[in-house]
Design a binder for these strands. Structure first.
Length: 650
DNA sequence: ATAGGGTTAG
């Protein structure tokens, strides 16, 4: 009966200010009945005060609620925990830090003993305001802590990348006898900074049976993926019964980020069959998979779905990158120009895309436009700019940007920037300056640095330096097949067969296997792979016939196979034969046979294109009036009308 | 009642 009269008072008080009808419904909810813990208010009716306060809290009327709070403080009366938690929510939503602190003071004033629940809410407020010190102080002062208090702190440390603290708190929590739940584990997993920790946590999770929780599962999958343990990620994914969208997204993203686009796309298809609708995260990962595999047609299909999430920045960035990496700058440009929001990643993606596709001058122009737009370049942007310079031989521009990057953009040159400069100088034939830079830089040269120099030596046929660089690489990375091949190639070019044999022996001794050249082409939604020495493609006979005819016609135009690119010490026609079956040639011919004339033939390669295939593609593009794009692991070649976008500089 | 998960450029 008491509560009913209080309720009437509440409603009465509310209707005096004539609130909208919905508010009345709010007030009828049970918590307005919990007006308890009254102090000895002097003259004013304390329940009216609390009613006002409660109403303002639920109305999200922060200024009035704070005024009411002051009056309550003066009268030494307190509301119930839930009302305070509503007020704190309101402070959080408005970013009202000072008001939050006033509430904090109030609920500790005059001996009032707030419940653990309320202190957890307050703790969370400090965490969300990023006031970790305040949160920690409160945590220490709390008379009692429960598993929510611990979890709140652990999540806070994980978010702040204070991984050791997060793990430490898990241990302290266990010691104090508080039991972690799925919230705790999903939070602590984000802080897990190594495989051994991850395995330990996973064991603990299995013991408690919490591995069926979708939050825990997605965190586990995500974590295993982060350490490249895709098999374990897949185990977590497959083991259980049901997955939600985020669990699917975790596993798809895991494969996409670990350059296994095939598996990512397989899972993407399975997800759709299972009845889930792709969201931004799914599409971003699927696009990334297309980017890695250079699947332009599939990427275009995904573009249609991207439109549903118009102006999602991350998704648009992924789309942009997909078009760049699939060699379609027209599409990339059109996406880029339509993007309302562009961040440093959008600009960097486009700059790098232009540079990789052979449009370095445009890339530099875009960089200028970026600066005008007010977006600050970062480490990667500058890398892209230097990359653009090195791929077009723009030595002066490159040196200018490199020397002034600290002053202009506040970015210290990192190892990779030096790498770009070694590339720039080396390719431009300034091998001595490149070597000098390697010695000058404050980083110990790594295998990548030496590989860059080796590439330049190959272009400029500096054998002695090449041998030196190759030996440095193999010291640092004895399993680098490409370097052995290159080294034996260099020896073969100078007819040093003894040295060739020695390199081969070393390779065999160290069980280093040469990666076979492989080219992929997408035709009618199917991916066709051509691997050197593998003739299992169903149309291989027709392709070979066609290839032979084309070469015969090309030779009449003056094509001379460049046998420098043959690895074995073979003679005459045998040499030409092994060149003939380079995978990109087969893929190009297959594309010509299966794609209509106006369609660009797009090939992706796992190894860098050889000089002979490069000449072949240029001449073929002219003779057959076709446009051919080949993407190798480093850059792109657009062949049209007898020339390549790389300007033969690669 | 209060605490937890997935997506973009080298």
């Amino acid at each position: 009966m008491k509560s009913i009269s209080r309720l009437k008072k509440c409603v009465g008080a509310a209707s005096m200010d004539s609130p909208p009808p919905l508010l009345l419904l709010h007030l009828l909810r049970p918590y307005s009945l919990n007006v308890i813990e009254l102090g000895n208010g002097p003259e004013r009716d304390p329940s009216t005060l609390i009613n006002d306060f409660t109403r303002f809290c639920y109305q999200r009327d922060l200024p009035r609620a704070m005024t009411a709070l002051h009056s309550m403080q003066n009268h030494k009366i307190w509301a119930d925990s839930i009302t305070y938690s509503e007020l704190i929510k309101c402070c959080l939503a408005r970013g009202a830090i000072e008001q939050g602190k006033v509430v904090h003071k109030h609920i500790f004033s005059d001996g009032y003993q707030p419940k653990t629940f309320l202190l957890n809410v307050l703790l969370n407020m400090y965490v969300k305001f990023n006031l970790l010190n305040e949160a920690q102080m409160l945590f220490v002062q709390m008379p009692q802590r429960n598993f929510v208090s611990w979890t709140t702190m652990i999540a806070a440390f994980s978010d702040a990348d204070l991984n050791d603290k997060a793990l430490e708190f898990l241990i302290l929590m266990l010691r104090e006898g508080a039991r972690p739940n799925m919230f705790t584990y999903s939070s602590v997993l984000r802080a897990c900074a190594g495989l051994p920790n991850l395995r330990q946590l996973h064991c603990g999770i299995i013991r408690t049976g919490l591995d069926s929780d979708v939050f825990v599962r997605s965190a586990l999958i995500d974590n295993y993926s982060k350490w490249g343990e895709l098999q374990n990620a897949l185990c977590v994914f497959n083991e259980m019964v049901t997955a939600d969208l985020v669990v699917w997204n975790s596993i798809i993203g895991g494969f996409a980020q670990n350059s296994d686009g095939d598996e990512a796309l397989n899972l993407f298809i399975r997800m759709k069959r299972a009845g889930f609708l792709a969201d931004q995260s799914t599409l971003t990962s699927a696009l990334r998979a297309c980017t890695g595999l250079a699947l332009l047609e599939l990427g275009r299909q995904l573009h249609v779905h991207v439109l549903k999430f118009h102006q999602d920045l991350i998704l648009n960035n992924a789309l942009l990158d997909m078009y760049c990496k699939c060699g379609s700058l027209e599409d990339a440009n059109s996406v880029f120009s339509r993007m309302v929001d562009k961040d440093v990643i959008s600009w960097s993606t486009m700059i790098i895309g232009m540079a990789q596709n052979g449009f370095s001058q445009q890339a530099l122009k875009l960089f200028e436009a970026m600066k005008v737009s007010g977006t600050r370049p970062n480490y990667i942007t500058v890398l892209g700019v230097l990359f653009a310079c090195s791929h077009a031989g723009l030595v002066d521009n490159g040196q200018y940007y490199f020397r002034s990057m600290k002053k202009l953009f506040g970015i210290d040159p990192g190892r990779e920037h030096y790498g770009c400069m070694v590339d720039l100088l080396g390719r431009a034939g300034k091998l001595d300056e490149a070597v000098q830079l390697i010695h000058e830089m404050e980083y110990e040269p790594d295998a990548v640095t030496w590989r860059t120099l080796l590439g330049a030596c190959r272009v400029h046929r500096n054998m002695d330096l090449a041998v030196y660089a190759a030996k440095q690489i193999l010291k640092l990375d004895p399993s680098d097949a490409g370097t052995y091949i290159l080294l034996s190639n260099i020896y073969a070019n100078s007819q040093r067969w003894e040295d060739v044999a020695e390199v081969r022996r070393t390779m065999r001794g160290r069980r280093v296997k040469k990666e076979p050249g492989c080219s992929w082409i997408e035709v009618n939604k199917q991916i066709h792979a051509f691997i050197l020495g593998d003739y299992s493609h169903p149309q291989i006979d027709e392709i070979s016939r066609e290839l032979n005819q084309l070469i015969w016609r090309l030779k009449e135009m003056g094509y001379v196979p460049d046998t420098n690119f043959v690895l074995q010490d073979l003679e005459g026609e045998q040499k030409e034969d092994s060149l003939l079956y380079h995978s990109e040639k087969l893929a190009i011919v297959f594309g010509m046979m299966n794609l209509s004339l106006e369609k660009t033939i797009r090939i992706r390669k796992n190894l860098r294109i050889c000089g002979d295939c490069h000449v072949f593609a240029k001449l073929l593009a002219k003779m057959e009036c076709r446009s051919i794009v080949i993407r190798d692991p480093i850059r792109y070649h657009h062949f049209r009308d007898g020339v390549c976008s790389c300007g033969d500089y690669w």
